[in-house]
Every structure is written in C-alpha cells, then in structure tokens.
Design a protein around this nucleic acid. Structure first.
Lengths: 175, 175
DNA sequence: GAAAATTTTTAGTGGTCACTACATATGTCT
DNA sequence: AGACATATGTAGTGACCACTAAAAATTTTC
C-alpha cells in the first residue's frame, strides 16, 4: 500500500512489491492473482485506515457547513501527515496510469465518494447539491495535489480553511 | 506535446513520440538530445500557446479579486476545453513520474508560476500574500485534477466561480 | 515414517523501455 | 561529375516490465 501511495501504480514493479511484503513474486500472484488484485486490496486497506475519512466525517453530527469544513481540514491533515504519505491514494495513485482497467477501479471509488458527499449536501440543499458537490471534489483534489507537490501542512490547512469559508458563504447565499 | 499532455511523461514512449512527429527515433535524438529535451521543448510550446494564461491574466488591468477570478475561470475553460486536452501539462503530466530530473523540470515551472501569483497578490495584500497564494495554487491544482478526472466544463466553471467568490471574501475580511 | 498436497524458490517467458552504432540515402560545394 | 558533410533508416543494445512453468523445500495426512 505504501509503495503504491508513494510512487503510483505504474511506477512500482511487482518485484519491488513482493520484496516489500517479504515474499517472492510467485507467492504474490498466488495470494492476489495479479498486480491489479494487490492494488485493489491496498485500496481497501487505505479506506479502512485513514483514507475513508470523508464518509466518516459526513456521518458525524453538525450542520452542513461545519461538516464540509471538517472534511477539508481533515483532508489537509491526512494528505500532509508527517507520519504518512502525501496526497490521497484514490485520487492520485492512478494519475497518468496506462492501464484503463486500473483507472476504472479508482474512478469507481471516486464516484462512490462523490455520491456520499452529494447525498449529504442534498439533505439540506437539494437544489444546489450538484454544484456544491463539484466544488467539494475540486477542493479535495486540489488539497491532495498540492500535498503531493510538497506544500507544507500548515499552508495546506490554511488553504482548506479558506475553502471551508467559501463553502459556508455559498450556503448563506443559497439558504 | 499532445501525447505528453494526454498520457503523462512516463506512459508515452519515444517510438510513439517519433511516429507522431513523423520521424524515426534517431532523428528525434539528433534534434532534442533526449526524451527529457523533447519534453522541455513541449513545455515551452505549452506556455506559449494556452498554458501561460496565469501570467498573462495577472498582467491585465483590474483589482486583485477580479484578476484571480479571471484566472480561475480561464483555468476551468483551458483545462476542459473541448478542442484541447483535460488538465494542465505543467501540473499533471509528471504526476507519479519515476524520473526525479523530470519532476524537477515541472517543479521549477510551478515555482515560477507561484512567484508570479505571489508578487501580484503582495502588491495589494502583502501580509496575506503567502496564504492567499497557497489557496490559489490549491484551487488551480484542483481544477486541473478534476478536469483530468472527467468533470464537465460547465461544472468546472461553476466550481471556479465559487472559489473566486471565496477568494474575494478573504480580501474583504483582510482588506 | 512414507506419500501426497501445498507452498516457496529458481529461473526464465515474451515484450517494451530509452537509447545508439552503423549503413544508407540525400544534399552541397567545387 | 566527384568529394564531403549531413540527415535518415535499419537494426539492435542491455535493462526492466508483468507474469509463470517447473524444481525444490516444506507441511500435511494417513
């Protein structure tokens, strides 16, 4: 999981993955079937560990502006955590990936995440749900990309706060 | 340039690039020295054609909020133009690239762009320049990434508008 | 303890990568 | 025309890719 996160799907080789796990390539194929199978397993682990913070945050108590603000701030923290790796595995590990099947895997996860966000927004602002959801996705993608480009945690957090303020202001106008 | 933009630096091969230009690989090496040399030339062309819109927009007349709003909207249009390719060549073509020298090339261009933005913001809001610049970078990265993930032009433009409103609101608070 | 099933290791499969040595064709100048 | 510089095409370099067949070691079962 760490290797996929750090270097992206294409750039990491099966031999390297096998060595990181501590087995030889054939054992890896026996256990996961293919590099794709291992990647899917890594994505599951990621969602269970820290990557699933969006869905978890949206299930908390609070009004919409608070929740989205929390999502942005947690994204900034998660994507630039010192003990972790920059950016989001789902959003960024298959960028410029040459295998369309692999892209489809992360595309599906992204669509799932989008639907979570859209439904929560629609509960309070059904008419503006699509627009606001797109804005949230753009912001999360931006936070992940900026973290990957080396932006430091404090700066990322401040940017997330500005985006959260912007989101809240939109609700004020539409509500 | 088109191939690098569509598929990313690593995923496109020299043989393919040579065929697209209409020559054989040795001629390509005679003209550009290496794949890296060709990529650098492609980046220059990109900045001259459509990719340099940030610097050009910041040189226009208008107050800061107007200019940044224009930058966001032009980013949304440029990154999702129907006759072009999704996203930004500088921001996204070396994501998950395995060659650190190549990453360094786009990193330098990004730093240059950041400095353009920071200087223009500092002219009117020197104290908040760093914070606001980071927010602009996060937003541009997000617009490019979302375009690459297939967000449609209208949705991207609406998200850019929300981000522009958020930026203007920050100026109101700090001004 | 021997046979069978399972796992691990070794060693390779064909394919593609960036890149290049060398032969061939082309153009230029006298 | 003939000598020379330049550009192109052919063909191949070793290295790495995902993946796997078969041998060796291990564990399980009777």
């Amino acid at each position: 999981m760490t290797l996929f996160h750090r270097r992206g799907y294409d750039a990491v080789g099966v031999a390297e993955l096998a060595e990181a796990i501590g087995v030889n390539p054939p054992s890896l194929y026996a256990a996961f079937g293919s590099k794709k199978g291992l990647f899917e397993r890594a994505l599951e682990r990621y969602q269970e560990s820290g990557g699933g913070f969006v869905a978890r945050t949206l299930a908390e108590e609070g009004n919409l502006a608070e929740l989205i603000g929390r999502v942005f701030l947690r994204a900034a923290e998660t994507y630039s955590a010192a003990d972790s790796l920059p950016g989001c595995l789902v959003l960024d590990s298959t960028r410029n990936c040459s295998d369309p099947e692999i892209r489809a895997v992360t595309d599906a996860l992204r669509a799932e995440g989008r639907e979570h966000i859209r439904r929560r927004i629609a509960r309070e602002f059904p008419r503006a749900a699509e627009v606001l959801t797109d804005y949230v996705l753009v912001t999360l993608s931006g936070l992940s990309a900026a973290a990957r480009d080396g932006m430091d945690p404090a700066a990322l957090r401040r940017s997330a706060q500005i985006a959260a303020d912007g989101f809240a202001a939109q609700l004020g106008g539409k509500g």
